[in-house]
Design a protein around this nucleic acid. Sequence first.
DNA 1: CGTCTATTTGAGTTAGCTCAACCGTCGTGG
DNA 2: CCACGACGGTTGAGCTAACTCAAATAGACG
Lengths: 228, 228
Amino acid sequence: MYVTLPVKAFESEITYQPNTLNDLANVNSQEMNFEPEESLFFEGDDADYIYEVVEGVVRSSKVLMDGRRQVLNFCYPGEMIGISHDRRYHCDCDAVSRVKVRLYRRNTSHGDVAKDPEFYARLLKNAAAEVNSMQEHFLMLGRKTAMEKLASFLVAVMNRQEHRRGQPIELELPMKRSDIADFLGMTIETVSRNLTKLRKLKVIELPNTHTVRICRAEELRSLAENAD
Amino acid sequence: MYVTLPVKAFESEITYQPNTLNDLANVNSQEMNFEPEESLFFEGDDADYIYEVVEGVVRSSKVLMDGRRQVLNFCYPGEMIGISHDRRYHCDCDAVSRVKVRLYRRNTSHGDVAKDPEFYARLLKNAAAEVNSMQEHFLMLGRKTAMEKLASFLVAVMNRQEHRRGQPIELELPMKRSDIADFLGMTIETVSRNLTKLRKLKVIELPNTHTVRICRAEELRSLAENAD
DNA sequence: CGTCTATTTGAGTTAGCTCAACCGTCGTGG
DNA sequence: CCACGACGGTTGAGCTAACTCAAATAGACG
């Protein structure tokens, strides 16, 4: 029945109850799991599904023929990916960590996503939010220094994740340095050097390579707009 | 009646006929004109209107406190700007040339844009297309050389505009060098130097500062992905 | 414990930046 | 009608932030 894209078998099938707050009415959805580095889809594939991240982190990216890569976004739980205007995906999409996603079928004879106005509204809001966040990312890519980029990235991850006031903030960065570098439009060496610099400035600590403890959040925020 | 945002008076008021192909059903819209460098809206303003460019070119941009600027997009006729997920604009928007725009009110008691499913669908498709084009822009900002950026820009303008096969292609570039520079994330000097370089390579001619004649389109396309 | 991969650090290079001079066009006023 | 100032664009010279290449180190995993 679902022969088109996701080659993996669906792990579960869920039908939402109509009119439940925060849920989508009358939309059939399935869940799927992916291991780190597994691909959800590739650029050029038929965009049969829209994905919602439920657990873990997903990375979308584009590559040039010579291998240069730009990471477009890291998607966290609650975020959607795979919306297309022309029935093709325009980026690659892979799991960074272990990932659970919910799939929404683009077009089916029954339970058609495109005919559900609430889902539509949600998609539009999501797309608008994505445009906004991409605009921030733009300013960063085009006009910020390496240090400002890295600080902005850490601030963005910090803002995305809940934390209790006053506490030193621990960020989990499941992605590799090369992912961060390709997201920020710089090299892994420059990422590494600037992390070290932040550590020496006592703005952060690095208990291990995938954890960043923010010691001076305000200092970091200020570095995100002005590299001194 | 329309006291909120656009301070300028509306030049005309149009009501679309329902069910006309390519038109929007039951949506009141107005048109407005802007002179070059006039602003349509600013970052942080209430996002009361969605704009569709009818004539001319519009520029959206973001600025850092110290004045560094990133141009996000140049909008050509048929494109929409001003969609927001949270009722605020997230970028500045200004006319590059003389511009005619059509305005759609975000929320009104009568003719509410948000309740018109066709308009919704159109907005969503537009937003998805914008995300796609921004993704291309990303790859460019983050990973391309100055020459590749400039060539990509010229190719994008070329693709956007109609032209008859075989003919040498003349592009009108109404924006200033500083706009191009801020769009590509480089300096005006680098833009200028690389235009000169393309001219010396006989890939383009520059009859005047705002016209580019593409002499070797294929060469240009190849430069857009590989600066040699 | 050894192998493999990711990350950090170091040293030298370079693409693109900054600063400065110059040029062309256009509009204004004597 | 011409002089001149303002503005946008081009070109040149030197500088520097980030890159490349290379080597050392640190985790991860069987």
